[in-house]
Amino acid sequence: RTCQHADLERLARESQFSVNEVEALYELFKKLSCSIIDDGLIHKEELRLALFQAPYGENLFLDRVFDLFDEKKNGVIEFEEFIHALSVFHPYASIQEKTDFAFRLYDLRQTGFIEREEVQQMVSAILLESDMMLSDELLTMIIDKTFADADSDKDGKISKDEWNVYVHKHPSLLKNMTLPYLKDVTTAFPSFIFNTEVED
Protein backbone atom coordinates (compact mmCIF):
# COMPACT_ATOMS: atom_id res chain seq x y z
CA ARG A 1 0.00 0.00 0.00
CA THR A 2 1.36 3.39 -0.88
CA CYS A 3 -0.04 6.84 -0.55
CA GLN A 4 -0.40 8.62 -3.89
CA HIS A 5 0.08 12.34 -4.32
CA ALA A 6 -3.64 12.90 -4.95
CA ASP A 7 -4.45 11.06 -1.71
CA LEU A 8 -2.00 13.22 0.21
CA GLU A 9 -3.53 16.40 -1.17
CA ARG A 10 -7.05 15.23 -0.46
CA LEU A 11 -6.13 14.28 3.11
CA ALA A 12 -4.48 17.65 3.63
CA ARG A 13 -7.67 19.34 2.41
CA GLU A 14 -9.82 17.19 4.72
CA SER A 15 -7.66 17.85 7.79
CA GLN A 16 -5.68 20.48 9.66
CA PHE A 17 -2.43 19.13 8.15
CA SER A 18 -0.32 20.30 5.23
CA VAL A 19 0.72 17.79 2.54
CA ASN A 20 4.17 17.47 4.12
CA GLU A 21 2.63 16.88 7.53
CA VAL A 22 0.39 14.17 6.08
CA GLU A 23 3.52 12.60 4.63
CA ALA A 24 5.27 12.80 8.00
CA LEU A 25 2.26 11.16 9.67
CA TYR A 26 2.42 8.44 7.04
CA GLU A 27 5.84 7.56 8.47
CA LEU A 28 4.28 7.18 11.91
CA PHE A 29 1.36 5.22 10.45
CA LYS A 30 3.71 2.81 8.63
CA LYS A 31 5.58 2.19 11.85
CA LEU A 32 2.42 1.54 13.89
CA SER A 33 0.71 -0.53 11.21
CA CYS A 34 3.53 -3.05 10.86
CA SER A 35 4.35 -3.46 14.54
CA ILE A 36 2.46 -6.78 14.87
CA ILE A 37 0.75 -7.57 11.55
CA ASP A 38 2.57 -6.12 8.59
CA ASP A 39 -0.44 -5.25 6.43
CA GLY A 40 -0.46 -1.45 6.33
CA LEU A 41 -3.47 -1.22 8.67
CA ILE A 42 -3.54 -0.49 12.38
CA HIS A 43 -5.13 -3.32 14.34
CA LYS A 44 -6.38 -2.81 17.89
CA GLU A 45 -3.43 -4.76 19.29
CA GLU A 46 -1.06 -2.40 17.48
CA LEU A 47 -2.75 0.68 18.91
CA ARG A 48 -2.67 -0.95 22.34
CA LEU A 49 1.02 -1.74 21.94
CA ALA A 50 1.78 1.86 20.98
CA LEU A 51 -0.23 3.31 23.88
CA PHE A 52 0.49 0.82 26.62
CA GLN A 53 3.66 -0.96 25.46
CA ALA A 54 1.72 -4.24 25.69
CA PRO A 55 -0.48 -5.80 22.97
CA TYR A 56 -2.91 -7.52 25.35
CA GLY A 57 -5.31 -6.50 28.10
CA GLU A 58 -8.78 -5.00 28.12
CA ASN A 59 -9.17 -1.25 28.29
CA LEU A 60 -12.54 0.41 27.92
CA PHE A 61 -11.03 3.69 26.75
CA LEU A 62 -8.75 2.13 24.20
CA ASP A 63 -11.80 0.35 22.75
CA ARG A 64 -13.67 3.65 22.43
CA VAL A 65 -10.70 5.48 20.90
CA PHE A 66 -10.20 2.64 18.41
CA ASP A 67 -13.91 2.62 17.48
CA LEU A 68 -13.87 6.34 16.82
CA PHE A 69 -10.78 6.11 14.63
CA ASP A 70 -12.31 3.17 12.74
CA GLU A 71 -14.84 5.18 10.69
CA LYS A 72 -15.69 2.26 8.39
CA LYS A 73 -16.22 -0.04 11.37
CA ASN A 74 -14.23 -2.83 9.75
CA GLY A 75 -11.98 -3.53 12.73
CA VAL A 76 -8.86 -1.79 11.42
CA ILE A 77 -7.64 1.79 11.11
CA GLU A 78 -6.72 2.86 7.59
CA PHE A 79 -4.39 5.77 6.90
CA GLU A 80 -7.15 8.19 5.98
CA GLU A 81 -9.07 7.32 9.14
CA PHE A 82 -5.88 7.91 11.12
CA ILE A 83 -5.49 11.38 9.57
CA HIS A 84 -9.16 12.29 10.06
CA ALA A 85 -9.12 11.38 13.76
CA LEU A 86 -5.72 12.90 14.53
CA SER A 87 -6.84 16.11 12.88
CA VAL A 88 -9.37 16.58 15.70
CA PHE A 89 -6.43 16.52 18.14
CA HIS A 90 -4.57 19.24 16.25
CA PRO A 91 -4.08 22.43 18.29
CA TYR A 92 -5.84 24.36 15.49
CA ALA A 93 -8.90 22.09 15.29
CA SER A 94 -12.04 23.83 16.51
CA ILE A 95 -13.26 23.52 20.08
CA GLN A 96 -16.55 22.25 18.66
CA GLU A 97 -14.84 19.36 16.85
CA LYS A 98 -13.02 18.43 20.05
CA THR A 99 -16.21 18.75 22.11
CA ASP A 100 -18.10 16.48 19.68
CA PHE A 101 -15.32 13.90 19.66
CA ALA A 102 -15.18 13.81 23.47
CA PHE A 103 -18.97 13.38 23.58
CA ARG A 104 -18.75 10.39 21.26
CA LEU A 105 -15.94 8.91 23.38
CA TYR A 106 -18.03 9.11 26.54
CA ASP A 107 -21.27 7.97 24.89
CA LEU A 108 -20.18 4.35 25.36
CA ARG A 109 -23.39 2.77 24.11
CA GLN A 110 -23.78 5.29 21.30
CA THR A 111 -27.29 6.30 22.25
CA GLY A 112 -26.75 10.00 21.58
CA PHE A 113 -26.63 10.69 25.32
CA ILE A 114 -24.04 10.24 28.05
CA GLU A 115 -25.94 8.25 30.61
CA ARG A 116 -25.33 7.97 34.31
CA GLU A 117 -24.44 4.27 34.05
CA GLU A 118 -21.83 5.08 31.41
CA VAL A 119 -20.13 7.67 33.60
CA GLN A 120 -20.21 5.23 36.49
CA GLN A 121 -18.71 2.53 34.26
CA MET A 122 -15.88 4.82 33.14
CA VAL A 123 -15.04 5.98 36.66
CA SER A 124 -15.09 2.36 37.90
CA ALA A 125 -12.81 1.31 35.00
CA ILE A 126 -10.26 3.95 35.97
CA LEU A 127 -10.41 2.98 39.63
CA LEU A 128 -9.70 -0.60 38.60
CA GLU A 129 -6.97 0.42 36.16
CA SER A 130 -5.20 2.53 38.76
CA ASP A 131 -5.77 0.27 41.80
CA MET A 132 -7.63 3.04 43.57
CA MET A 133 -10.35 2.36 46.07
CA LEU A 134 -13.44 4.49 46.41
CA SER A 135 -16.50 3.69 48.48
CA ASP A 136 -19.79 3.25 46.60
CA GLU A 137 -21.11 6.15 48.64
CA LEU A 138 -18.37 8.51 47.47
CA LEU A 139 -18.68 7.30 43.87
CA THR A 140 -22.43 8.02 43.94
CA MET A 141 -21.73 11.43 45.42
CA ILE A 142 -19.26 12.32 42.64
CA ILE A 143 -21.67 11.17 39.91
CA ASP A 144 -24.58 13.02 41.59
CA LYS A 145 -22.56 16.20 41.74
CA THR A 146 -21.45 15.88 38.12
CA PHE A 147 -25.00 15.31 36.91
CA ALA A 148 -26.34 18.15 39.05
CA ASP A 149 -23.95 20.38 37.12
CA ALA A 150 -24.21 18.86 33.63
CA ASP A 151 -27.72 17.42 33.29
CA SER A 152 -29.71 20.63 33.29
CA ASP A 153 -33.09 19.09 32.39
CA LYS A 154 -32.60 16.42 35.10
CA ASP A 155 -33.57 13.47 32.92
CA GLY A 156 -30.61 11.38 34.10
CA LYS A 157 -28.62 11.68 30.89
CA ILE A 158 -26.45 14.33 29.27
CA SER A 159 -27.54 15.46 25.83
CA LYS A 160 -25.25 16.93 23.19
CA ASP A 161 -26.50 20.45 24.00
CA GLU A 162 -25.99 19.96 27.74
CA TRP A 163 -22.50 18.63 27.02
CA ASN A 164 -21.65 21.71 24.94
CA VAL A 165 -22.66 24.00 27.81
CA TYR A 166 -20.87 21.86 30.37
CA VAL A 167 -17.57 21.77 28.43
CA HIS A 168 -17.79 25.51 27.92
CA LYS A 169 -17.95 25.85 31.72
CA HIS A 170 -15.13 23.34 32.23
CA PRO A 171 -12.72 23.77 29.29
CA SER A 172 -10.04 21.70 31.02
CA LEU A 173 -12.12 18.63 30.10
CA LEU A 174 -10.78 18.98 26.57
CA LYS A 175 -7.15 18.91 27.68
CA ASN A 176 -6.57 15.41 26.26
CA MET A 177 -8.17 16.43 23.00
CA THR A 178 -5.16 18.50 21.95
CA LEU A 179 -1.79 17.00 21.07
CA PRO A 180 0.84 19.75 20.80
CA TYR A 181 3.09 17.28 18.90
CA LEU A 182 0.81 17.60 15.90
CA LYS A 183 2.03 21.14 15.25
CA ASP A 184 5.49 19.75 14.74
CA VAL A 185 5.11 16.43 12.99
CA THR A 186 7.54 17.15 10.16
CA THR A 187 10.29 17.71 12.73
CA ALA A 188 9.22 14.68 14.74
CA PHE A 189 9.30 12.41 11.66
CA PRO A 190 12.03 13.90 9.45
CA SER A 191 12.36 10.65 7.50
CA PHE A 192 9.33 11.70 5.42
CA ILE A 193 11.76 13.87 3.45
CA PHE A 194 13.19 10.75 1.81
CA ASN A 195 9.75 9.82 0.51
CA THR A 196 8.23 13.24 -0.05
CA GLU A 197 6.19 13.93 -3.17
CA VAL A 198 6.01 17.68 -2.77
CA GLU A 199 7.66 20.62 -1.15
CA ASP A 200 5.21 22.57 0.95
Binding site: L28, K31, L32, A50, L51, F52, Q53, N59, L60, F61, L62, D63, R64, V65, L86, F89, A102, L105, Y106, V119, M122, V123, A125, I126, E129, S130, I142, I143, K145, T146, D149, A150, Y166, H170, S172, L173, L174, K175, N176, L179, Y181, A188, F189
Partner: peptide
Protein backbone atom coordinates in the same frame (compact mmCIF):
# COMPACT_ATOMS: atom_id res chain seq x y z
CA UNK B 1 -9.69 16.35 44.74
CA UNK B 2 -11.84 15.11 41.85
CA UNK B 3 -15.41 16.13 42.38
CA UNK B 4 -16.12 16.26 38.71
CA UNK B 5 -16.43 12.77 37.22
CA UNK B 6 -15.36 13.88 33.76
CA UNK B 7 -12.36 15.72 35.15
CA UNK B 8 -11.41 12.47 36.84
CA UNK B 9 -11.95 10.42 33.66
CA UNK B 10 -10.05 12.77 31.38
CA UNK B 11 -7.08 13.20 33.67
CA UNK B 12 -6.76 9.62 34.86
CA UNK B 13 -7.51 7.55 31.79
CA UNK B 14 -4.36 6.46 30.02
CA UNK B 15 -6.42 5.15 27.10
CA UNK B 16 -7.45 8.67 26.17
CA UNK B 17 -3.92 10.00 26.21
CA UNK B 18 -2.67 9.66 22.65
CA UNK B 19 0.56 11.56 23.26
CA UNK B 20 2.39 8.26 23.78
CA UNK B 21 1.89 7.55 20.06
CA UNK B 22 4.44 10.27 19.44
CA UNK B 23 6.63 9.63 22.43
CA UNK B 24 7.32 6.07 21.27
CA UNK B 25 8.49 7.21 17.85
Amino acid sequence: KFFNAFEFISSMSSGFDLSSLFESK
